[in-house]
């Protein structure tokens, strides 16, 4: 048998959070759940989640699936913050870097 480059660890198990120097933080009071950040994330590090606990601009938006950032895989590229049409995502410097 050969030594093939196949690992028993799926890539989802590999955490890339330490690559980040700043992290996106969503202000749910501004978030309309449009899903643009979810579409643009190049690392599939944003999930759309049905949640009653998150703030929303009004009750109508609160019923929609909201974006939640998976900080295990987010590398902090900032694309979501740039693309958000409602300025609802802010890039915050990671404290460990300071």
């Amino acid at each position: 048998m050969v030594l093939a480059p196949v690992a028993n660890v799926p890539s989802a198990n590999i955490k890339t959070s330490s690559w980040r120097d700043s992290k996106p933080v969503i202000d749910y009071d501004k978030c309309t759940r449009c899903g643009i950040c979810w579409k643009f994330c190049p690392d599939v590090a944003i999930d759309l989640v049905a949640s009653q606990d998150l703030h929303a601009p009004n009750e109508r938006f609160a019923k929609l699936e909201a974006p939640v950032i998976n900080y295990d895989h987010c590398k902090g590229c900032g694309i979501c913050a740039t693309e958000c049409p409602f300025d609802a995502i802010e890039m915050v410097r990671e404290e460990a870097i300071e």
């Binding site: 480059p5 196949v6 690992a7 028993n8 799926p10």
Partner: peptide
Amino acid sequence: RPMGYGSLV
């Protein structure tokens, strides 16, 4: 049985 193929080494 998900696995990593050609992942970083």
